[in-house]
Nucleic acid binder design. Structure first.
Lengths: 182, 182
DNA sequence: TTGGTGACTAAAAACAACAATAGTCACACG
DNA sequence: CGTGTGACTATTGTTGTTTTTAGTCACCAA
């Protein structure tokens, strides 16, 4: 896993062979296939790791805020910022994540699902505290906001929205929060 | 232009040569270059034509509604529906439009600009009639809603949102309209 | 039985030789 | 002088060939 992170991050997914990985850890290629079903499985594993880092950053940002309103703002902002940072600083890893999202790999699906869960929790808390309106069905609200965030959640879409990564989330947060007003 | 529409729509941009176009209209290839600076220019021209059809459909949908609220709903829905229809029925033309958006050609930029203008007009009218809130600066409101619609406006992004093309616009319309409530 | 491998194959990538194409230009015709 | 073109080139795409590479398997050693 460590070696894979190194190599994928440095040379990219396509340019690193399973033999390279084997050599790096001093074992034979065949042995690697005792632990991973395929090269793609290795890719998914490190993709998961990468995306989990984003989720962790988002969770920390949310935990660091007090009101649900502020939690939502930070959540959205952090999501876009860490995603963009990944794009600019670890392009090779980003490309794997984008590919993963494009192919609908489980790792990418899980990531979207996690983000959605965090969002649901923030909204739920906001409703409980009376900060957000309660008329619209929770599912509907969450789903709509999820759609709004999608361009910044999915690595596949993020790359087309990099120019809006600074202002976009803030402005969209404002819009969403107006729609959540009781 | 007619021949280009035919050929691009049938065989795709890459697979039709400028010579094909010349042959189709009974002139030499060199003569075409008296009217167009490059093959890309021809592509942009028919791309413009394609995207204009979408704008026209949207304009008609807006004109057919009475209240600004309804105008916005129809605008969004029609935008996504005609875009998706282009994708499924004229895939080759869609691909040109997507490529155009990806490369930032003027034709695609102009299209986004037109959509934004229509949106601005709808919001402005809604504010005048007291249907929409007036506290938020108009520019900010429009820009944020524009960001929300982007995944359905840009052919480049639309292709990744085809699964949400049925429900998405309706749900996002609801969200946006809640945010516009006075 | 658990930890580990070299040797193999089918599929895919890299490459090189070749063909097709975008774009130009000097020039012909009325 | 306006309408139109064949012939040319640099570049891009295609095609067929050779190398790599993902993935398997029978087998070895402790």
């Amino acid at each position: 896993m460590e070696a894979a992170g190194e190599h994928f991050g440095h040379y990219g997914y396509d340019k690193t062979t399973v033999s390279d990985l084997a050599k790096a850890i001093g074992f034979s290629k065949a042995y690697i296939y005792k632990f991973f079903d395929s090269k793609q499985a290795i890719g998914e594993a490190i993709c998961s790791k990468t995306l989990t880092a984003i989720v962790v950053a988002v969770e920390e940002a949310v935990a660091g805020a007090t009101t649900p309103t502020e939690k939502f703002r930070r959540m959205f902002k952090t999501l876009a910022a860490t995603g963009a940072s990944l794009f600019f600083n670890d392009r090779k890893l980003y490309d794997i994540a984008a590919h993963s999202a494009g192919e609908g790999w489980p790792s990418a699906r899980a990531h979207c699902e996690r983000i959605r869960q965090i969002l649901t929790e923030v909204i739920r808390e906001g409703r409980e505290k009376g900060e957000f309106e309660r008329k619209t069905p929770l599912d509907e609200t969450v789903h709509a906001i999820d759609l709004v965030m999608q361009p910044y959640v999915s690595p596949l879409l993020l790359q087309y929205n990099l120019d809006a990564v600074e202002e976009g989330p803030a402005q969209l947060s404002n819009l969403v929060l107006r729609s959540l007003a009781p």
